[in-house]
Amino acid sequence: MSTPGIGVKDVFTANGSAPVEYRRIYVWELPVRAYHWINAIALVALCVTGYLIGAPIRLFNAPEAYEQYWFGWVRFIHFAAAYVYVFNFLARLYWGFVGNKYARWSAFFPLKKSQRQEIVDVIKADVLETKMHGPISTGHNALAGLIYFGTFLAFVFQTITGFALYSSMSSSWLPRMFTWIVPLMGGEFAVRFWHHLFLWFFVTFIIVHIYLAFYHDYIEGRGTVSSIIGGWKFDRENRGK
């Protein structure tokens, strides 16, 4: 393992059997973890408010309009969360150039043969529950990296269509940059449709992502879930990559 690990050796005893040595590796730096949780909160807020904007629930007892403003707040939260999410995303894009090797762009594209091999292996392990052939990558596995890159593309799409929809209600420079999208996609109706459809991509992604994090925590046995809180993962000593 070429990873610059920290020289602390943790001893793990499995059911009283002989100890196996693990090494702690600092995988997710603070900016990556901060990105993850800010993104998670913003995305959940965006999904919930986005769904409500598309299909408002019935929430009134026949009052007058001046007495409440809940739908205005729902939209406000959506727009505010969108700004947080976009700038957080931009920061993550930057970190892809300067972060550690687990955060870098090379982790997102299966350019090496070993990465492509890992994709096949992980699909088998996840879907058919077969045993992995070799040790799995310490950071993102090759399949996860590729899927995260797919989510980045979805982020970009939602950002563009979202700002395009927002541009007609804003005079701020950032949304105004996207006004040309609306005629390009055939009017606001179409933009709204696509923006709404992609909501379901995120819903599906969140379900699968959380489950697979739990599942890999179990099959890999080296703190996958806790790594996104503390940043540490564990690798066995004396094993190749």
Binding site: Y51, G54, H196, L199, W200, T204, I207, Y211, Y215
Partner: peptide, 27 residues
């Protein structure tokens, strides 16, 4: 609408996850 499709996909995903949980625990 997109919501019908989304709900179907979401529920199907949840069902898949549930099946996976069962299979994992069996093994």
């Amino acid at each position: 609408t997109a919501d019908t499709v989304g709900t179907v996909v979401g529920v199907a995903t949840l069902a898949g996850v549930a099946a996976h949980v069962v299979a994992t625990n069996v093994r």
